[in-house]
Amino acid sequence: MALSLAISPCPNDTFVFDALVHGRVPGAPPVEVTYADVDVTNTAAERGAFDLVKVSYAALPWLLDDYHLLPCGGALGRGCGPLVLTKGDRADLAGATVAVPGDRTTAYLLFRLWSAGQPPARIEVVPFHEIMPGVAAGRYDAGLVIHEARFTYHRHGLTALVDLGEWWEADTGLPIPLGAILARRGAVDPVAAAGWIRESVRQAWADPTVSREYVLAHAQEMELDVVDRHIGLYVNEFTADLGEAGFAAVTALLDRAATAGLVPQTSSSRATAWTS
């Protein structure tokens, strides 16, 4: 029976999961893949739509009753946080219309934590690929962006008002928890799934050329240099194992957000007991 997997088409996900998707991980079942932006997978996971699924860490409070958090395969790191972009020299977001890529994305949760106590802005959920062009054209006063936009926003004539990753790291000393991999309870053994993903990561690092065609086929016309920089930034030691620092970052994010009333309270044991 095939395993249903949902990931984004972004280079970090296709790079990490190439071996698993293409049947090169010994002992792993066949995989049927759905490619979707994380805002879509966050919603689909609430319906229990997939056996393995990439979601935002910000969505965990709504998902951990039905899914195990896996300690590998996701996106955490340093120097890789979301950016708030504007056109011109805007000093703040008072009265601004801000385009965001999803209301349960980690980027938006970090934005809400950062902007607490500041003058309110009007929020619009916008497909990710429309955010930078929309800000450049004046449809939005600011945009919250992630992933490869870190490398390309200058081309749109935009300026970074704040790097939310830098803010988070300076405030906590912890890496930035962005995207998580979950295994549906009762559908897949989380220990086995973690083993398959780690082997897929190992193979990706051992010979990056093997996944090149697959990665580029889903890279949405990204330039090769941007693809390589994207993978280099988002596929790192936390992809192979969250470790103590990774789990501490997840706990800090969810605890802060719950204290601020932005998400339901999630017990630390629920967020880390992925083998239970």
Score class of each variant (00 low, 15 high):
Thr172Arg: 06
Arg150Trp: 01
Ile181Trp: 02
Ala187Gln: 13
Ala142Val: 03
Arg155Ala: 10
Ala252Gly: 04
Gln203Asp: 14
Phe238Glu: 10
Arg184Thr: 10
Leu242His: 08
Asp241Thr: 05
Val250Arg: 09
Gly195Phe: 05
Thr159Pro: 04
Gly157Gln: 04
Leu216Gly: 07
Thr239Ser: 14
Asp255Val: 10
Val188Ser: 08
Gly165Cys: 07
Leu158Met: 06
Ala258Gly: 04
Arg229Met: 03
Leu144His: 01
Glu244Cys: 00
Trp168Cys: 09
Asp189Thr: 14
Asn236Phe: 04
Glu223Thr: 08
Thr259Ser: 11
Phe151Lys: 09
Tyr153Ile: 00
Leu216Ser: 13
Gly157Asp: 06
Asp207Gly: 12
Arg150Thr: 02
Gly143Trp: 05
Leu164Gly: 09
Tyr234Asp: 03
Ser211Val: 09
Gly261Phe: 05
Thr266Val: 09
Ala142Phe: 00
Ala248Gly: 11
Ala149Ile: 00
Ser200Gly: 10
Ala204Phe: 01
Asp255Ile: 02
Ala240Ser: 15
Leu174Ser: 13
Leu262Pro: 03
Gly138Arg: 14
Gly179Val: 01
Ala252Phe: 01
Trp168Gln: 12
Ala260His: 10
Gly157Phe: 01
Val162Gln: 13
Val145Lys: 01
Leu161Gln: 12
Val210Gln: 15
Gly179Ser: 07
Asp171Met: 06
Ala170Asn: 06
Arg184Val: 08
Leu174Val: 12
Gly165Glu: 04
Ile231Tyr: 01
Glu169Arg: 06
Val145Ile: 01
Gly195Met: 11
Gly243Phe: 07
Gly243Ile: 11
Leu254Glu: 08
Ile197Val: 14
Val263Gln: 10
Gly243Gln: 12
Thr159Asn: 14
His218Glu: 03
Val235Ile: 10
Tyr153Ser: 00
Ile146His: 00
Ala192Ser: 15
Val201Ser: 04
Glu223Phe: 00
Thr251Asn: 07
Ala240Phe: 07
Gly179Asp: 13
Leu178Tyr: 03
Gly165Gln: 06
Glu166Arg: 13
Val235Gly: 08
Ala137Thr: 11
Ala170Trp: 00
Arg198Cys: 05
Pro208Asp: 14
His218Tyr: 03
Glu223Ser: 10
Leu158Tyr: 05
Ala193Lys: 13
Ala149Leu: 00
Asp163Glu: 10
Ala249Glu: 07
Pro177Leu: 03
Leu161Met: 14
Val235Trp: 03
Ser211Ile: 07
Ser268Met: 00
Leu253Trp: 03
Gly173His: 02
Ala170Arg: 12
Gly246Ala: 02
Gly195Asn: 13
Ala219Gln: 08
Ala187Ser: 14
Asp189Lys: 15
Pro208Lys: 12
Val201Pro: 04
Thr159Lys: 12
Thr251Tyr: 00
Phe247Ser: 12
Arg150Gln: 09
Glu166Asp: 15
Ile176Asn: 02
Arg256Asn: 07
Ser200Met: 11
Ala160Asp: 11
Ala252Trp: 02
Asp225Thr: 11
